[in-house]
Design a protein around this nucleic acid. Sequence first.
DNA 1: CGAACAATTGATCCTCATCAAACCTTGTGG
DNA 2: CCACAAGGTTTGATGAGGATCAATTGTTCG
Lengths: 234, 234
Amino acid sequence: MQINPEDLRRVDLFKEAPLEDLNALIGKSILRPIEEGGFLFFQGDPASHVYVLMSGRVKLLQSNPSGQQVNLRTVKEWEMFAALGAVRPAATYPVTAQALESSSALAIDSKFLREMMQTRPYLNFGLMQLMTGYINELQARYREMATERVERRLALTLLRLASQIGKRIHEDDPAVELPLTRQDLAEASGSTMFTVSRTLAEWERQGILEASRGRVLIRNPHGLVKIAEGEESE
Amino acid sequence: MQINPEDLRRVDLFKEAPLEDLNALIGKSILRPIEEGGFLFFQGDPASHVYVLMSGRVKLLQSNPSGQQVNLRTVKEWEMFAALGAVRPAATYPVTAQALESSSALAIDSKFLREMMQTRPYLNFGLMQLMTGYINELQARYREMATERVERRLALTLLRLASQIGKRIHEDDPAVELPLTRQDLAEASGSTMFTVSRTLAEWERQGILEASRGRVLIRNPHGLVKIAEGEESE
DNA sequence: CGAACAATTGATCCTCATCAAACCTTGTGG
DNA sequence: CCACAAGGTTTGATGAGGATCAATTGTTCG
């Protein structure tokens, strides 16, 4: 399969990149297909590549010493991830990347991108924008984890994921689909499969969403907003 | 009071800055003294300045909608903070900065620093190093908040704070002092004053530390490491 | 000395994790 | 096309970890 350089402009970082740069990047990259459940890299591996997801959905997760997992970010097509490797020469990945569905990712040589940055101010600025945005999100999520209880965190998590990786089911319908298991949602909201299952069942009863195996369909995002912002349900 | 440009080299970002740049920066900056408990800026204020702490200790915190606070970072002298303003032109501070003790901070005009970055690659690289380091720390803390229980989180928090803002009590003694109230520690570890108080009392009984009003003296950091890593205390 | 504020301590209660068991759903192979 | 296996999901029962509340005690400083 061949990559169209123009397509790469859909990646924020490459929005204004000259065609020349894009071609050079593609020359230094490999397209890696990856089936559902497969891994692109593991926490602790040397950060040899920076990735751009071309299709599918990928989650980035971290494990604590006892093996419990936390979902730090979920990525959709045209998003760049594992970009830390572009900044730190000798870094290792701080996260593991696992495909939520069959996906393909462009693996760009970290070293090459790093060298390119030396002479391309647009790359520096773009990367910093990415990082500041991510820092803001992480700070907000950290605060939520420290101060909100599970139900509200789960509502916030669903809303965030819907906007980040949700698929509209139909043009003029706000309903949004997420390819996530209860376990995925537990890891993303800092809870357990069981509590997520119970909470989703309750919301299903209220008509806010539909939950099925490995999938959540959010019917009424506004209902979640109300829960997230404190309108208790009775 | 006058600022010595050479001193600014103790700031990571300015380690290799030419004297000329340092002088220009100082010319565009104000030294702001701030008494204990005072605020440098509030969450939501326009991010007009980037700060370098010259002396004292400052905490950066965020409030959730109901007013509960979370400590995101604690800063000591020669550290830069609120650097997001240097990257995003129209940003507001995502955190509030409050002095833990009487301090003074150099307030650098964000716009000026931003313009300077256009022609100074060392600033770009330095800032990215800062940001990647901070992202790594935040991710780790997020994971801890999601997966570890209070006692272990508090141990990890104390160790982290000790290395970041701790003051050695004596040259050849590992004992380290922190100017933090129980409330501060609760906000930094995602717990409550009460639980922190009880836990510190227990650790004091074990000889790991000494706690007094607004202050914790860590006598035996290794004891905390053991708790943080899972050696239960019996 | 008294006011302000930090810290302690005990009693209580609630959220949510944990565990066990059964139930569905989906895909595979015979 | 059915049967089975694998793995996601549900549901109930139980209990632990900590938050919350109230009352008191300690510390610091003007």
